[in-house]
Design a protein around this nucleic acid. Structure first.
Lengths: 234, 234
DNA sequence: AATACTTTTATGTCTATACATAAAAATAGG
DNA sequence: CCTATTTTTATGTATAGACATAAAAGTATT
């Protein structure tokens, strides 16, 4: 009576390996059998085992090194992955109605803090935009943005009265690098007014800077209305 | 004179495809050639092209559907991935000296908000821990944590005077599910004192809840000292 | 004992091929 | 014309085999 076993897929192998890690069958810091051995155990091939282990390593459970083998990470550096959302998507996905409103649009001299941050010469002008995003007519996010016309000349022709600069840029302008920073800031009088908050309220704030191959594209500061939570599961 | 072309690796193919997307050679929403066609163009095989496209899809640039083909995403839902760090690592990696201090450790009745959040019966006790994390002797993070002894009986024997509950759990307790929430909160008197802040200061706050296969393991609230920034690049 | 060279080996990747499967497109039936 | 069924097709995955490569382990040389 032989085992009536279907062939395991790479997903099955991932599951089994993960279980063994979690049940401490393969303890932290210990070495796994080689791909060849595992392939034999699962009566699969090295290619399939390789994919399973490679993905588990990407997900932060394993560490792999040529010749040294595959090791279970002791404190799994688990990686929270979350999608950088468009405000409008975030709102509509929550089942609310999205509304956009332009507050201010001007061509200004680049502030020195910005040229320092972006490591560019300050001798150019930037497009400065302030706008609001509403969810069910309640203030959701106050956005302040600087766009580099040198990188995005077309932005000078867009008036941003109908479309937010975020979605406009997402459509028009590709980027290669992104830096996101999250902080808690204090609502000053202006922000409080825009967000329908009290002065001094804690405000969840995101800063985003994007580049297209070393050339700065835009810098944005997104101030969320009080009570905003950013959540991820994994 | 034939083209002296080396075979392209899947990484090369990824690079070329990404360039074409960024240069709008393959515009947003447009359909890419099939894997077979691309394999021919790059004089490679479908397997290799598949890996390149699959990874670009995972990274959020492409959308793939059987039979329908591979499509360029218009607003690339780019995914920020950041590792959930151990406080101690975060501090030492910044070149500072880490110090830990236990503030409070008690076995208490489970608060009703917690049993509601975790969807468990409130009739059990939980291990309640407060502690501090310092960077170069300056307050860095104030941690409040609830551990479910039902899931982690060994926690009752650990006194947490030397090792923080975070790293203890990371070593001892595997988890399968994690929920992380980021918010901005206002420092109350207690938090202000612990973090050397003023009452009312905006405090960047993380909440983490972990489960081991549907069984809640721990819930933690991490209050960061004023000025804390969480940053990712991609 | 310390150094430089060689071997071994586990992972990394590519190829060629086959079959599976979801979903679009075409076709048949009412 | 609408609906149900069949066909087609692009992606999804598995296999067997090969060569590449980093790094550990072993060996020889100073």
């Amino acid at each position: 009576m032989s085992t009536p076993r279907e062939n395991l897929s790479y997903k099955d192998i991932k599951r089994v390996v993960l279980e063994r890690i979690q049940k401490r069958i393969w303890a932290p810091d210990s070495l796994l059998p080689s791909e060849t051995e595992l392939a034999e155990e699962f009566s699969s091939t090295r290619t399939t085992v390789n994919r399973a282990l490679r993905e588990l390593a990407e997900e932060g459970f394993l560490e792999r090194k040529r010749k040294a083998g595959t090791r279970v990470l002791n404190a799994p550096l688990r990686k929270a992955q979350f999608t950088i959302p468009q405000v409008s998507d975030e709102i509509t996905e929550a089942g609310k109605t999205y509304r956009y409103s332009l507050v201010n649009r001007a061509l200004i001299d680049m502030p020195s803090w910005l040229s320092a941050k972006l490591a560019t010469k300050a001798t150019q002008q930037v497009l400065y935009i302030e706008c609001m995003h509403f969810a069910d007519n309640a203030p959701f996010q106050y956005e302040v943005r600087w766009i580099m016309p040198k990188s995005v000349p077309a932005a000078l022709d867009a008036d941003f009265r109908e479309v937010g600069p975020g979605s406009w840029l997402a459509q028009e302008m590709p980027f290669t690098d992104l830096e996101v920073t999250f902080t808690a800031t204090k609502a000053d009088q202006q922000i409080a007014e825009f967000l329908d908050a009290r002065e001094g309220d804690p405000i969840f704030t995101t800063q985003r800077t994007t580049w297209l191959r070393a050339q700065p594209v835009t810098h944005a500061r997104l101030y969320f209305a009080p009570g905003y939570k950013m959540t991820t599961r994994l």
